[in-house]
Design a protein around this nucleic acid. Structure first.
Lengths: 156, 156
DNA sequence: TTAATTTGTTAGCTTAGGTTAACATTATAT
DNA sequence: ATATAATGTTAACCTAAGCTAACAAATTAA
C-alpha cells in the first residue's frame, strides 16, 4: 500500500533526481528531516510497490509508474499552493505548509477542478498547462498574464 | 498529543451529542467504521488531553475545551465543503469526502481566508456567520442570499 | 595505498492506531 | 426476577512509521 508517508518520500526523490541528477539516501533524509534508516525502509516499501528500482549500495531510480505518481502529486501541490497564495492571499510560507498537507488529501477530481478554477480566477487561458514543477509553467504563465490582465476566454 | 485520528473521534462525538443528546461507544464505532475497542482507546486518550470526561460504563461528556475544538474542526469542514461543492462544483459525495480530509489539513488562517473568500465568491455578506454545523447558518445564508444576489459589501 | 570520512544498512526498540476474542456490565423483555 | 440481548472493557496481538546504536561499504585525502 502506498501510504501518505511513502508518497512524501517519492515526491522528494523525484525532485532530488531533477535537481541533482541522482537520488541519495542522505539527501532524502535531510530533505525529509528524518533518519537514514527511515529512508531505507521507505526505499524497500516503494520498491515493493514497483515505484522504484534499487539494489543495496546501488543507485535509486524511479520506475515509470513511480515517476508518474510523483508528477501527479507534485502537480496537485503546485495548484493548491497557487490557490492559497494567489487566490486566498496567504503568506508564501503558510501557503507552502498547507499546500503540502492539502495536496495529499484531495482527489484527482478536486485537483482538476481547482486547477481550472484557479486559472480562471487569475485570468489565465492555457488550461492545458501541466503545472510542471520543474519548468514552473504555471507560475511563469501567471507572471506572463499578470502584465496583460483582463484576457479571459471561457472554454469550460 | 491530539492526533488527527483523535480529532475525528472528537468531532464525531460532538455531532452525536447534538443529534442524540448523548454519546455512546457503539454509535461512535458505527459512525467511524471502527471497532468498539478503538473507540475506547480514543476515549482514554481524549480524556488524558482534557477534552472529555468519562468513567467506565458512565456517560461521555465533552469538556469545554473539547467542545470548542470540535466546533473549530467542524467549522473548517463546513467551509471547505461549501467551497468544493458551491464554488468548484464538485458532486456532493465527492465534496464531502475531500472536505473531510482537507479540513484536518488546513491551518486556522487558511480556514479563515477560505471562509472569507467563499462568502465573497457566493455573494454573501454576513462574514461574522459562524458556520454552525447544527443550525447550518452558512448553508441557509447561502440559500437566503441566492435569491437577492448582487449584494456584496466589501470590508476585508 | 591505506586511513579517515562519508554514505548506506541492519538490528532492535518505541509509539500511534488499529484489530479480534473473550469477558463484564447494563438494559430489556418475558 | 431473571434470561437474553445490547453495550462497554480488557487483553493480546498486528502494522506503519519513526528512532538510535552499531556496523559495512564506498569514497576521498594523505
Amino acid at each position: 500500500m502506498v501510504t501518505e508517508s511513502l508518497k512524501e518520500y517519492l515526491k522528494t526523490m523525484y525532485i532530488l533526481k531533477k535537481q541533482n541528477g541522482h537520488i541519495r539516501v542522505t539527501d532524502v533524509a535531510e530533505k525529509m528531516n528524518c533518519s537514514k534508516p527511515s529512508v531505507n525502509k521507505a526505499i524497500n516499501n516503494l520498491k515493493l510497490e514497483g515505484l522504484l528500482s534499487y539494489e543495496s549500495y546501488g543507485t535509486i531510480e524511479l520506475t515509470e509508474n513511480g515517476e508518474n505518481l510523483a508528477k501527479k502529486l507534485l502537480e496537485a501541490y503546485d495548484i493548491v499552493y497557487l490557490f492559497l497564495k494567489e487566490v486566498l492571499g496567504l503568506e508564501e510560507e503558510d501557503a507552502k505548509i498547507d499546500a503540502e498537507k492539502i495536496k495529499s488529501a484531495i482527489s484527482d477530481e478536486t485537483a482538476n477542478k481547482l486547477a481550472r478554477y484557479v486559472h480562471k480566477a487569475l485570468g489565465l487561458t492555457n488550461l492545458n498547462c501541466n503545472y510542471d514543477i520543474n519548468q514552473e509553467k504555471c507560475r511563469s504563465c501567471i507572471k506572463r498574464t499578470s502584465n496583460k490582465k483582463g484576457r479571459n476566454d471561457d472554454e469550460s
